[in-house]
Structures are given as C-alpha cells and as structure tokens.
Simulated assay, not measured.
Amino acid sequence: MLLGAGQRIVFIGDSITDCGRRDHAAPYGDGYMGLVRAFVDARHPQLGLTWVNRGIGGDTVRDLAARWEADAVAERPDWLCVMVGINDIWRGFSPGREAEAVPIDEYERTLRALLRRAVTTTGCRLVLADPFLIEADVDEPQRAETDRYAAVVAAVAKDFDAVHVATQAAFDRVLAHSPSSRWADDRVHPGLPGHAVIADAFLAAIGA
C-alpha cells in the first residue's frame, strides 16, 4: 500500500470526482472517491488518513487552473489525485459549446504546469487518472479523441513519477462483456457500478 500513516489525500477534478460532494453527498461525494476512501479506511484503519474532495462538476483543466492555489496547493496534500479532461474533450462534441473545448496541446501544457506547481510547493506525490468515454468502439470520434488525451496523461504520469490509473482500460475490460448503458446513460457520468469500476482501478494502482 502506497499511502502512509497520517497522510492527507486530496482529489480534484470534474463532476466524476464531485459527485454531489457539495450538496446531497457532502463532503466526499457518492462516486469513486467515496468508494476509494471507504475501502481504504476499512482495510487500513490504523493509518488515520484524511480525505478531501475538491471536484467541481463541469470543470476543464482551465477551471482547475483558476482554483488550483486554493483547492490543490493550499490543501497541502501528501497525495494529490487528479482526474480531468472529459469536459475538455466533450465540449468539442457538444453543439454550441465547441469554443469551450480545450485543445490537446493546451491541455497538456496546463496540466504539466499545475502539477509542477503542486509538487514544487507541497512535495506531494501524484495519482493521475485518465479521462475516459464509456464507449467500446475505439474508432468512434469522441472515443478516439479521448484516447489521445489519455495518452497525454500516461506520458505526464511517467514524467512526474506519478501513480497512473488507467480508467479507460478499466472500462474497456467491462465493455468487452456488457453494453455502455449498463455503466452510464450518457457514456460519461457513471452510475454506482461504473464508479466502482473506477474505484477498483484506483485501489489496484495504489496497492490497496
């Protein structure tokens, strides 16, 4: 298990991380982050970990940049878990919102700058999760674009010696046996079983 006693673990990202943490499911949300916390605490109660959810629905990497100091750096994490990119891609496939999409070069440049700032300032370790689309057809345009952004995250994770959570691969495993609709109504926002797929990938990545 990579997490150590008394450590502070901060999650930041979009609606997949948020998952009601600011209202009905405060403070952890009822998605993958809450599941990861629940299982790690249950299996390792002696560690006395502190968990923080700073996901906000609708965020792109630009939005993370605007709140990075307050919601990432100022939290002084020992581990910072970042999942962002779904909206950066999805907006390009949403009529009338194409201008809100974040080009892949800007996405990578911004993500690297944010992570460098966090690591340099706090000394935190990183967990980076891929953006995903719950779609089995790798040639479908949005899925193909998502795979390009996921490859960026994998490369960034390697460069930062971060733990990499291959969420798209986790969904591909279950999609080999079931339709996308079993996991999400819109291929983006998972139900509880879909969040369990993500949480399972997180737990495996951190050795929990």
Rank of each mutant, 00 (worst) to 15 (best):
residue 1 M to H: 14
residue 5 A to K: 15
residue 9 I to T: 02
residue 12 I to R: 00
residue 15 S to W: 09
residue 16 I to Y: 06
residue 20 G to M: 03
residue 25 A to T: 06
residue 28 Y to K: 10
residue 28 Y to V: 14
residue 29 G to D: 12
residue 30 D to H: 15
residue 30 D to R: 13
residue 32 Y to L: 09
residue 34 G to M: 07
residue 35 L to P: 00
residue 40 V to G: 05
residue 42 A to C: 10
residue 45 P to V: 12
residue 48 G to N: 05
residue 51 W to N: 12
residue 52 V to E: 05
residue 55 G to Y: 02
residue 60 T to M: 05
residue 60 T to C: 08
residue 68 W to M: 14
residue 74 A to D: 13
residue 76 R to H: 14
residue 83 M to V: 14
residue 85 G to L: 00
residue 87 N to S: 12
residue 89 I to F: 01
residue 89 I to D: 01
residue 93 F to D: 04
residue 94 S to H: 08
residue 96 G to P: 08
residue 96 G to K: 09
residue 100 E to K: 15
residue 101 A to M: 14
residue 103 P to R: 04
residue 103 P to Y: 04
residue 107 Y to S: 01
residue 107 Y to P: 01
residue 108 E to G: 09
residue 111 L to N: 02
residue 114 L to G: 02
residue 120 T to I: 08
residue 122 T to I: 03
residue 124 C to F: 10
residue 125 R to W: 02
residue 126 L to S: 13
residue 128 L to H: 04
residue 128 L to V: 04
residue 128 L to F: 06
residue 129 A to Y: 11
residue 131 P to M: 03
residue 133 L to C: 09
residue 135 E to Q: 10
residue 137 D to C: 08
residue 137 D to Q: 10
residue 137 D to M: 10
residue 143 R to W: 02
residue 145 E to A: 12
residue 146 T to Y: 02
residue 146 T to C: 15
residue 147 D to Y: 02
residue 150 A to I: 00
residue 158 K to P: 00
residue 160 F to C: 12
residue 160 F to K: 05
residue 170 A to D: 06
residue 171 F to H: 02
residue 173 R to A: 14
residue 177 H to R: 07
residue 179 P to S: 09
residue 179 P to V: 08
residue 180 S to C: 04
residue 188 V to R: 03
residue 190 P to H: 09
residue 192 L to H: 10
residue 196 A to W: 07
residue 198 I to P: 00
residue 200 D to G: 13
residue 201 A to W: 07
residue 203 L to M: 15
residue 204 A to S: 15
